[in-house]
Amino acid sequence: MAGKSEPIPTDTVAVHPQARSIRLVLGLAMLAALFIAPQFLYPIFLMKLLAFALFASAFNLLLGYTGLLSFGHAAFFGGAAYFTAHAVKEWGWSPEAGILLGVLGAAALGLVMGAIAIRRQGIYFAMITLALSQMFFFFCLQAPFTHGEDGIQSVPRGHLFGLVDLNDTMNMYYFVLGVFLIGLLVIWRFVNSPFGMILKSIRENEQRAISLGYSVSRYKLGAFVMSAALAGLAGGLKALIFQFATLTDVAWQMSGEVILMTLLGGIGTLLGPIVGAGLVVSLQNYLATSDFPVTIITGLVFMVCVLLFRRGLVGEFFASGLGRKLGFRADK
């Protein structure tokens, strides 16, 4: 979607000779910043940011690399939050097992929703995923294990592998950071795997991919399930961070939020969703104390993004002179 309509300028900007090293230093600096960040900022805020960054990255895996716009990713995020919360609270599972259940549950949901939704393309795909996730929302509203409007409260964080006490905020932070980095690594590997390459060629030209003999729907479904599972990973984390799972996490507004994070940061870039999530979460935090509704800003940012910078902040930076000088590519 982003790649097709926004051609990158073809004029050549000389890439700085040390561009590779500069990029590496920048990356390491960001990583280091994440490690020392809790010294300066509220850990709970940082953990929320990381969970949403992972969620947005999972969403971007689908939109940015296969061109499928899902309007129903809240179902995977919120669904996994419920599964994880239920497993650790009611069944006494360990946190890692609870999160694993959330991931598997989200993947299963993704398999069912994806199988139905990929029967239509483009705009219909978006509407169908939205409708199916709304169906899941109503299911959660009525199913007894979610406790309806109350949600699952006071979820214990427990001990990681029976050893590390996650009730300690710093332990929890580094656990979240670890899961986040693993999630990103999985996405990066996936995108650059042969499977990911085929997904890209499907996005560029679906007809050609079909004529080359690829079973396009199977690849799309694979990407959908993968994206759902990773969204589930983020949802499971979220349940442990905040120690609750509620209907907010499965509501359509959440699907909208993750789209906004990705769009604002830059569709189809690895860094974009993370930056977008950071901005949106910060904005929500900032406005939490005022009575000004976040949705107005969210809505306006959506409109401005779509009208004026469809590449997103990171995409625009990559496409700018400086970005290209550093050897970034907004879209391959």
Partner: peptide, 9 residues
């Protein structure tokens, strides 16, 4: 996406 943002606003 644009009309979604419009609706939210």
């Amino acid at each position: 996406l644009f009309t979604f943002g419009l609706a939210l606003a």
